[in-house]
């Protein structure tokens, strides 16, 4: 085991960007204010000075245009990293992502690939109101032809970018905006072997499985900690990848605990939690000792006032209550 060091999630993203830019001349970063301003969440702060305006490129406020440019560059041999300020704005680029990035390998019979990485900030909790705070992960996870990952831990924020760049197909990295200041451990040296396909068990337990991803992994761990005091032993699964979904890890856990709670900051209707719940019921029905519970955001546009915003999204208390329901306590 190599030595560990503590850095923030933001620093992990920046380190990963710097490493990618240093190792491979085909890599460049583009997005709104990624240059002198250092990006909306300061992930690229200092990179302009280090790598110059050719490789750290500010774009106009035109998501469809610059994502399309990234797709073209990728098809022509470059390894672009495109930053979209928030997932709400990514909707302007959906046509490029869905109709071009995701389809070209298939429509060209494998002649072209799109080795593009798109990073975007997601989620609520920073009082940025309804146009900057949503969780549309399920919109992307719905689409065959792209890969969608959501690093929850700092080590994943550090390791998933090089793994995404190594993938020959488009990869969307969802970075929850509340995580950038979170500190965590990463290996001090050596390879960051990060498998993009597999979910990870962040806490082992025997009584109930909490399946979640991104910032809610931390809330699920807090709920599990609280429930441990009630002699309820939770297993917490960090999905890591939202497309593909690692069924094997989820099902193995549910077969052990017989109870599942899915936590998703997206809205309940037709979302990731619905998908996970359906998969559990399709493949582990006879192992279930309670209906699968979902803890999702209230179905309103995310409110601006802090107390309402917090009330609208999953919390450790609501997660713990759902776990208790599965145990009929």
């Amino acid at each position: 085991m190599s030595e560990m060091r503590r850095i923030t999630y933001r620093e992990a993203v920046r380190e990963a960007l710097r490493e990618a830019l240093s190792r491979d001349e085909r890599v460049f970063l583009m997005g709104e204010d990624v240059g002198a301003y250092g990006g909306a969440y300061a992930c690229s702060l200092g990179l302009l000075e280090e790598f110059g305006p050719e490789r750290i490129r500010n774009t106009p406020l035109a998501e469809s245009g610059f994502v399309g440019a990234g797709i073209g560059a990728a098809m022509n041999g470059m390894r672009p990293i495109v930053e979209i300020m928030t997932i709400n704005f990514s909707l302007l680029a959906l046509d490029q992502i869905v109709n071009n990035a995701a389809t070209i390998r298939h429509m060209s019979g494998g002649q072209f690939s799109v080795p593009l990485v798109i990073r975007m900030a997601t989620g609520a909790g920073r009082q940025l109101a309804a146009q900057h705070s949503h969780s549309f992960e399920c919109w992307f996870a719905h689409i065959p032809g792209i890969r969608v990952v959501a690093p929850a831990l700092v080590a994943d924020a550090r390791g998933m970018l090089p793994a995404a760049l190594a993938d020959p197909d488009p990869v969307v990295i969802m970075e929850h905006a509340t995580l950038y200041n979170v500190e965590g451990e990463v290996p001090a040296d050596g390879e960051l072997a990060v498998d993009l396909d597999r979910a990870a068990i962040r806490r082992e337990g025997t009584d109930a499985t909490i399946v979640t991803y991104s910032a809610n992994v931390m809330k699920a761990l807090a709920a599990a900690e609280a429930l441990a005091g009630e002699a309820i032993d939770c297993e917490v699964i960090d999905l890591r990848s939202l497309r593909p979904i690692d069924d094997a890890t989820i099902l193995a856990s549910v077969r052990k605990t017989h109870r599942a709670v899915v936590v998703d900051e997206g809205w309940r209707s037709v979302g990731i939690a619905a998908e996970i719940s359906a998969r559990i019921q399709e493949q582990a029905f006879f192992d279930l000792d309670a209906p699968v519970e979902r803890v999702c955001s209230v179905e309103v546009p995310i409110p601006y006032p802090s107390h309402l915003e917090q009330a609208a999204i999953p919390q450790p208390e609501t997660i713990a209550a759902a776990v208790r329901r599965t145990l009929r306590r």
């Binding site: 017989h258 029905f285 006879f286 192992d287 000792d289 009929r328 306590r329």
Partner: peptide, 26 residues
């Protein structure tokens, strides 16, 4: 009766008619 309970009762040869429901009548 939960699916897991049904399966376990079958495996252990327990007649579910003899099992008293717990909380929430489950």
């Amino acid at each position: 009766i939960t699916p897991a309970a049904r399966r376990q009762a079958a495996e252990k040869g327990i007649d579910l008619a003899t099992v008293s429901p717990g909380a929430e009548g489950v």
